[in-house]
């Protein structure tokens, strides 16, 4: 990667050793170099330095002190860390699973070709995704207030009000709803494009063979949609593990309340360790643990989907 720095695209020498091929290669490397330079500084190096940092005690100002695995000890023996871990997983499940099922349903409905308003629906379903998470959280915090609309609806249905901004489950339901609202339509549109990429004659052939709607769904649509489902699930899982802004803003009304236990997530824990308490070492250890958890879940995701793939692959053959 040192080459591109030496020669700029304008410095074209006519010396014979700079053949046309070599010059074009150098140009290409120059064109792509900004990404690799920036990524090495702000992407790659931070990951390795985080691992290194996790073995030191440091407040970001004074000298660093090597402490071995003590940061990991401190973090894993802190009950708040484990609360943040379970919260992240619970809200991840609550936000992701219903969201993907709902998105699939909406996509199948939109695809069925009955509506003439497909384009309009696409735009409407997509609108939540362009809103900032802060705006989403603020709007939903009015809906989820103690006397807010959601509780009014619950009462109307004969159910008790829920403490959405302080209860253990209430907070999680509110935050998962915000995540779902922002992403369901987006995922539905992705699934819709997936559905549109399936050749129509497959369905016609199945219909001639006497397959009903449900059989078409399980034997054609779902298997062919699998790559899209895998992609969406993977991205949603990674996103769910990084959950921060919703709980931080939603529970942060009193300035310091954002680390409240009902809604603390792993990233919130990391943030408050580093930027509130100045414990960069334990924050780094948290980041490493989060990284490991992210990798485990991504691998799990791929494992499950490849097993699913094995089944459908066998079915197709």
């Amino acid at each position: 990667m040192a080459e591109p720095v030496l020669t700029s695209p304008h410095a074209e020498s006519k010396r014979p050793f700079l053949t046309e091929q070599r010059r074009s290669r150098i140009t290409a490397y120059t064109f792509i170099s900004p990404f690799f330079i920036l990524f090495s500084i702000f992407g790659l190096y931070p990951i390795f330095f985080t691992i290194y940092l996790s073995f030191f005690k440091w407040d970001a100002l004074g000298p660093m002190k090597f402490v071995g695995l003590k940061n990991y000890d401190l973090v894993t023996s802190d009950p708040t860390f484990w609360i943040s871990f379970t919260n992240t997983l619970i809200m991840g499940l609550m936000g992701t699973v219903p969201q993907i099922i709902l998105a699939l349903l909406l996509a199948v409905l939109l695809h069925s070709g009955m509506t003439k308003f497909k384009k309009t629906f696409r735009i409407l379903y997509f609108m939540p995704n362009i809103t900032s998470i802060v705006a989403v959280t603020l709007v939903f915090s009015t809906l989820f207030g103690n006397n807010g609309m959601i509780n009014w609806l619950l009462n109307g249905l004969g159910l008790d009000s829920m403490a959405f901004n302080s209860g253990w489950w209430g907070v999680k339901i509110a935050i998962s709803t915000m995540v779902m609202w922002r992403w369901t339509g987006y995922n539905a549109i992705i699934f819709l494009s997936g559905l549109q990429s399936i050749p129509v004659d497959l369905y016609e052939a199945a219909r001639i063979d006497g397959a009903n709607r449900r059989q078409q769904l399980t034997f054609i649509t779902l298997p062919l949609l699998r790559p899209f489902i895998v992609f969406v699930t993977l991205l949603s899982t990674i996103g769910a593990l990084q959950l921060f802004t919703e709980p931080y803003v939603f529970l942060g009304q009193s300035g310091t309340g954002s680390t409240r236990q009902e809604g603390i997530t792993m990233v919130t824990y990391l943030y408050s360790e580093a930027f509130r308490n100045g414990f960069f070492g334990t924050a780094a250890a948290t980041a490493v643990l989060l990284f490991v958890v992210t990798i485990i879940f991504s691998l799990l995701n791929m494992l499950v989907s490849s097993r699913m793939g094995g089944d459908t692959g066998g079915g197709k053959a």
Binding site: F42, F49, I238
Partner: peptide, 12 residues
């Protein structure tokens, strides 16, 4: 696929 939050400390 690499979440940016993970490298936030060194970047800071």
């Amino acid at each position: 696929f690499v979440p940016q939050q993970l490298g936030v400390l060194p970047t800071y």
